[in-house]
Design a protein around this nucleic acid. Structure first.
Length: 401
DNA sequence: CCAGCGATAAACACTA
DNA sequence: CTAGTGTTTATCGCTG
């Protein structure tokens, strides 16, 4: 493969431009209002400390409470005010993301619930130039997911493996980006960005389902018992929240973003503390397998969705293996392709290049929100987990081989 | 039981 | 030469 691996011709053509484009965007902020921008994760970037003011709390509460209320109790607030979902759908979720970002700084030592692909994606997306050398990707992951600091170095191999294998990532010539050092810069292929976002969203569905509710079931369907359960179990709660959020987002009618719009910045709000899998111990290794699997392959679904997507829609996988590669963009048939996905599947027409013309900022925001919500939620949980346990450090040892 | 998928490990090649 | 990077292949575990 040439400099740009696994990319379809069109992608290759874009590569150079993409980088520049992203650089120009300067992160999400470019497209967001100032206020949002300020709060936006990307804007804040990795460094932003977790300490944030009321906004984060507010936002957090907003999302967290509303979601729960919405589903479980339907508290007055939820009733009186538009549900978070609406906000999200209405593009107001940006603040949420920002809050998520704010929260994200908490310590996280648990294995992130995200697949490597998503981790990489987040790392890249959060970089100012939207492109990073592998080294920086490592750094980002380590910074945001301390879990890996204690993990065997194999995760780096996995990162590289994903970069090479996953079509979502494209290699940029050094000349275009990095001048010094080894290796090239890696960026997210705009084409697949929506897919990645979607994957993020989907990632938590399963969990949610497993914990709580039938995805398709309306809020009313939630029983008080569950609520109690949730209350009693913060961990699950977060999971549920995340899942719920995702579910809502996904189910949202207008939730599609301009999939391929390169300008759609994704704000994965700093995943700083995004960890879902609280216990690496449970995992045999640093991978998220345990979490994913336990929760119904949340990650798998994400990844698999990616793969499927890739094959089906954006199939450019000409030279690439099917392993953990791209995403397919066609949501229409996504369910069909991925039976595992909950019925909630989003109807988001994600992707696909064809759908790309409509670059709706709103959609972008939605995506961002979704991602932010996810991260945010995860962050919450991570905070809880971390505070509770510090011991998880049991390094997962290799179960096999 | 099988297929699909993600994760992991390892080997190899290339480059700074 | 070494270390980092990039690619490829093989294998394992899990889920549907």
């Amino acid at each position: 493969m040439g400099p740009i691996i696994g990319m379809s011709p069109d992608k290759k053509a874009e590569s150079p431009g993409v980088v520049e484009e992203r650089a120009g965007l300067r992160g999400v902020c470019g497209t967001l209002p100032e206020a949002e921008c300020a709060a936006s994760p990307l804007a804040t970037s990795l460094d932003r400390s977790s300490s944030s003011g009321d906004e984060e709390l507010t936002n957090l509460n907003w999302l967290h409470e509303n979601l729960l209320q919405n589903f479980t109790l339907g508290s007055p607030e939820a009733q009186t005010s538009p549900s978070p979902l609406f906000d999200i759908e209405g593009n107001h979720g940006a603040s949420v993301i920002s809050s998520a970002a704010a929260h994200a700084g908490e310590s996280v030592k648990s294995k992130p619930p995200f697949s490597f692909s998503l981790l990489i994606y987040m790392a890249i997306e959060q970089s100012p130039s939207k492109s990073l050398p592998v080294k920086d990707i490592y750094g980002w992951i380590l910074e945001h997911f301390p879990y890996f600091s204690s993990a065997p170095t194999g995760w780096k191999n996995s990162v590289r493996h994903n970069l090479s294998l996953n079509k979502c990532f494209r290699k940029v010539e050094r000349s275009l980006g990095k001048v010094n050092g080894k290796g090239s810069l890696w960026c997210v292929d705009p084409e697949y960005r929506p897919n990645l976002i979607q994957a993020l969203k989907k990632q938590h569905f399963p969990s949610a389902h497993s914990f709580c509710t039938p995805p398709a079931s309306p809020p009313s369907a939630f029983s008080p018992a569950r609520h109690l359960f949730l209350q009693g179990c913060s961990l699950k709660e977060s999971d549920i929240d995340a899942a719920t959020a995702m579910m809502l987002l996904n189910s949202a009618p207008g939730h599609h973003s301009d999939p391929c719009d390169p300008d759609s910045p994704i704000d994965l709000s700093r995943p700083h503390s995004v960890l879902v899998s609280s216990d690496p111990k449970q995992d045999h290794n640093y991978s998220s397998s345990s979490f994913q699997r336990c929760s119904s392959r949340s990650s798998s679904s994400s990844s698999s969705s990616l793969s499927s997507l890739d094959e089906a829609g954006c199939d450019s996988g000409q030279g690439r293996r099917a392993g953990s590669e791209g995403f397919h963009s066609d949501e229409d048939s996504e369910e069909e392709r991925n039976p595992r996905l909950p019925s909630l599947t989003v109807k988001c027409p994600l992707p696909v290049k064809r759908a790309r013309h409509d670059s709706k900022p709103e959609l972008d925001e939605e995506l961002k929100e979704a991602a932010g919500s996810l991260l945010h939620l995860a962050g919450i949980r991570s905070g809880l987990d971390l505070s509770k346990r510090t011991a998880k450090s049991k390094k997962p040892e290799k179960h096999r081989k």
